[in-house]
Design a protein around this nucleic acid. Structure first.
Length: 478
DNA sequence: TGAAATGTTGGGGCG
DNA sequence: ACGCCCCAACATTTC
């Protein structure tokens, strides 16, 4: 008979397709489940305040489903090395199982956990992160990571995606009971309850994730290639927060999508399914890149961007955060984010371009706000997304690509339903007025534009030209 | 996973 | 009938 096992949950808050849990259950000898809330300096992989709200509810549902199988979720907070080792010792586990996460601090963190476990003679077994393919398996011919999406995607599509494994039928508790904090002790919920909008829009947890997936594959996926760009309708899957916390695995998403769009025979299903899987591969791309280049979290991939002539301005940054820039699409997006903890992807590109190019605010400031307010705040996606926008990342948007918020609005929110939903000051205006190139006519309490579009665009182009000039002259010197 | 500036074409109004 | 101009509409190029 094997000794007990401890499953250390992190960004894998599910029971289906959970390799670590299956491996633990197969050993017999009892399984304990653990979640450790790390100290504040080690929470980059969780996200910010909105993500902590999500995490609270996700842990609540995970705790219930584990209990249904006969097990118990132990909650702790503090240094993971200490907590994991202590819990393992208390429940008599000789092996700890977990999944990798993509985070620059991961390697040293796991080394510390491993070292702490070895002192008591226990060992750590680490399974693949929540991705379609293992990091390190998608490389170009010279054995380097792909830095451009299209060839990455082409190579990634060739690979077989492993089949999901079913949840264990039951979880026997280890012989020794182990003390646990209560969920409230983790203090994940905000002290001042601003989460009403989040509660209204989301159902954290594995069951909620499966419902979203099935409702998406049942309808919106067929129109996904066009619908995904229209923030006024529910054209996207809205699975990102579920995926971030691993409430559903990427492999499950892949296989269910292939199954339901290829065999359902639904009009447009196949095309929509492929377009959607392409987006799943963007996530894959970001995670593989961050795995290979962990320094990307704080530093631009292209070194010369360290000298970018930002014009840091707290008032402009605050106007952007609060959705008071005077640009309807930008403000609608920022208010949707504030209210729901989520923003439509098309609009994320618009607001990010606006902050970086129109306002010349440093992209890490934008990334930090997204981290704090998004329920799907994800280190890899967020970092690579902002670097893409700023033009300083691998496979970056070209420096001259400046989104025009009015044009984007006219194109992707033609009836202005999205703007009117989130910017009530403009509810009485026509779509033409809302998306007019000069901005909506002055009225009521809606702010006048904080910058003028054409001028701001020129200023951004000059800033980027200056950067290129510096780079070129430095080349000549050397 | 843009937008603006510039270039080209073709239809229609008009002298 | 003809040439001229205007200007959409579309294509190309530049940022």
């Amino acid at each position: 008979m094997n000794a007990a096992s401890l499953v250390w949950f992190r960004l894998d808050l599910r029971l289906e397709d959970h390799a670590a849990l299956c491996a633990a259950a197969e050993r017999g000898g009892g399984v304990a489940a653990l979640f450790v809330l790390p100290p504040e300096g080690d929470q980059a992989w969780i996200g910010g305040a909105a993500s902590r709200w999500w995490l609270h509810h996700s842990l609540a549902t995970l705790s219930k489903t584990i209990a249904k199988l006969g097990g118990k979720l132990i909650l702790r907070k503090g240094d993971p090395a200490e907590q994991v080792a202590q819990t393992a010792r208390q429940c008599g586990a000789d092996t700890v199982f977990c999944h990798h996460i993509i985070d620059p601090a991961e390697a040293s963190r796991l080394n510390r956990v491993r070292a702490a476990l070895e002192k008591t003679g226990a060992c750590l077994r680490v399974f693949s992160p929540n991705l379609l393919a293992d990091t390190g398996t998608i490389m170009n011919r010279s054995g380097e990571p792909f830095k451009v999406f299209t060839p990455f995607h082409k190579a990634a599509r060739q690979l077989n995606v492993a089949d999901p494994v079913p949840a264990p039928a039951r979880l026997d508790r280890p012989p020794q009971a182990v003390p646990s904090l209560s969920l409230e002790d983790l203090e994940l919920l905000p002290r001042h309850d601003w989460a009403a909008g989040l509660r209204e829009h989301w159902a954290p947890g594995e069951a909620g994730a499966r419902r979203r997936l099935h409702s998406f594959l049942g309808s919106a996926v067929a129109q996904y290639p066009e619908g995904r760009d229209l923030p006024g309708i529910e054209g996207t899957s809205r699975l990102s927060p579920h995926l971030h916390f691993g409430e559903i695995s990427a492999r499950t998403l892949y296989h269910e999508t292939v199954l339901r769009t290829e065999t359902a025979g639904k009009e447009g299903g196949l095309r929509g399914g492929e377009a959607w899987l392409r987006q799943l591969h963007w996530r894959e791309f970001a995670h593989h890149l961050l795995f290979h280049y962990p320094h990307l979290v704080g530093a631009p991939m292209q070194a010369e961007f360290a000298a970018f002539p930002w014009r840091e301005n707290g008032k402009l940054l605050e106007a952007w955060r609060r959705g008071r820039t005077g640009y309807p699409m930008v403000d609608a997006g920022m208010r949707e984010l504030w209210h729901t903890g989520w923003m439509h992807n098309r609009v994320r590109m618009i607001v990010a371009s606006f902050l970086v190019k129109h306002l010349l605010q440093p992209w890490p400031d934008g990334a930090a706000w997204f981290t704090d307010t998004l329920v799907d705040a994800d280190l890899a996606n967020n970092t690579l997304g902002w670097q893409w926008t700023a033009g300083c990342g691998p496979d970056a948007a070209p420096y001259f690509r400046v989104f025009n918020p009015s044009l984007q609005g006219a194109r992707f929110d033609p009836d202005a339903a999205y703007v009117r939903r989130w910017v009530p000051e403009l509810a009485g205006m026509t779509a033409k007025q809302i998306h007019s190139p000069g901005g909506p006519p002055a009225s009521g309490h809606y702010p006048v534009p904080v910058v003028e579009h054409a001028g701001a665009r020129q200023r951004a182009l000059m800033a980027y030209a200056e950067l290129r000039q510096n780079r070129n002259s430095r080349k000549e010197e050397s």
